[in-house]
Design a protein around this nucleic acid. Structure first.
Lengths: 237, 237
DNA sequence: TTTAAAACAATAGTAATACTATCATAAAAA
DNA sequence: TTTTTATGATAGTATTACTATTGTTTTAAA
């Protein structure tokens, strides 16, 4: 017996979910489409956060979710592409937050402040994708994110569009910067630097405190926001 | 027959060489002390530059220098410590260049400009350690350097003093920044950011040009220097 | 110059990693 | 109901990241 009520319920539930369309070269099969796929995303985030990217393996992941290596390989060619997938997911999500939060804001100075707030506090402003722990994903981006593009394959990966999410985010932030100060000579550099600085200094505060002036207590990143605003205010006048 | 002239020549040649005292927890045996050790340093730089850190192995290195894996393991516990060693060597060398170039300069603004010039053009200002290709080592620091401290062992490594070279460099640059503008609130963050920005944007220019405004033609990094001076001038006034 | 010690090479071996291949079964779609 | 698709179970391979042992050079001390 086919129950249409259940079928509709499933459809509605599915359509309410946030779903990002990521570059389909990143996976062999879209993990957002199936139970196992979502399990892979969910638990790879938890495991990479737990073990670090180097010690994370598909075998451990398979054991954790009660599946097999072979099944995971049907979704992702290797763990590097999975990392790029996760990082892209993160940047798509930050872009989404920025878009929602700056909607109807016209003053570019205020816009930039909201942008900074959005990505510094991204893990707290949860849009509710139940299989993604945004806070741990943020930790992964901070700790392992640079490894996504620091490889011998960057150029190949880049030509396949694997870093498009980050590039388009950088582009839209740089547009806001140019709106504030059309004379400012390095809008792209400042845009990317805001993201890199945010991630770096959260990491430094936690692990190499003598490389920074700020501190992060628990997950309180207020000082990061203050610092980024201090820098941008001085740079754009 | 023992020839004293040759013996003295060797002693003088040895003593003229630049030699950094790096944290001795990084190696099992100081590679700067022997022929094989220097071979390891020299060819690991060439091989990591050629293959990238992930694909670099002690086996390949051993084959390249006509030695064996086991012999290399007598110098370095693993390739990660070798990477940290190389990165430390690089920062020690930059510190040395900065010290030499800012000697007798009292104006902190000029000092900072010289500092920026020193590390941006470090690979060209060769102090002549014949077994180190500074230009390729710089490429390694740009492409692989972040991996030295983005691991699950950061805290352990840090407590052993493995990042001291970088921290003390950051400290001395931050002192110059505070001299220029004692009101500036984030001297450490600015200091580290100058180094990170330099490396990042050289990398972006080469591999992900849409993340930066500058371009690097061949190894001409003039635009990086101009950009860093532009940023610091605006920030410290 | 002899002798002892240290350094290095040669070889072998192990557990884990990063896959690939095949086949059976269960679930979903036509 | 049949067919396709998705997953699980199992096995296997080349490579990596080591460790251990033994013998031979090279170097340094006596």
């Amino acid at each position: 017996m086919f129950d249409y009520r259940i079928w509709f319920w499933i459809q509605i539930t599915m359509s309410l979910q946030i779903r990002f369309s990521l570059n389909d070269g990143l996976y062999l099969k879209d993990p957002q489409d199936s139970k196992l796929g979502k399990n892979i995303i969910q638990h790879s985030i938890l495991l990479i956060d737990e073990y670090g990217f180097e010690s994370f393996t598909f075998k451990k992941l398979a054991e954790r979710i009660g599946s097999t290596e072979a099944s995971i390989y049907r979704y992702f060619e290797n763990k590097h592409l999975l990392l790029i997938f996760l990082v892209n997911w993160y940047w798509e999500w930050v872009s989404y937050l920025i878009k929602v939060n700056t909607m109807n804001v016209s003053d570019p100075r205020i816009k930039l402040k909201i942008i900074i707030h959005s990505f510094v506090f991204a893990p707290k402003d949860n849009p509710g994708v139940e299989y993604v722990n945004e806070s741990k994903l943020h930790n992964i981006v901070i700790s392992e994110g640079v490894k996504a593009y620091h490889t011998k394959d960057v150029d190949k990966d880049n030509s396949k569009g694997f870093f498009k999410s980050y590039k388009s985010l950088a582009n839209s932030v740089s547009n806001v910067i140019s709106e504030i100060d059309p004379q400012f000579k390095y809008p792209y550099a400042l845009a990317t630097n805001l993201f890199e600085m945010s991630n770096n200094h959260i990491y430094f505060a936690k692990h190499l405190p003598r490389l920074t002036d700020i501190s992060v207590n628990g997950n309180n990143v207020d000082e990061v926001e203050t610092m980024l605003n201090y820098f941008t205010d001085k740079l754009l006048s």
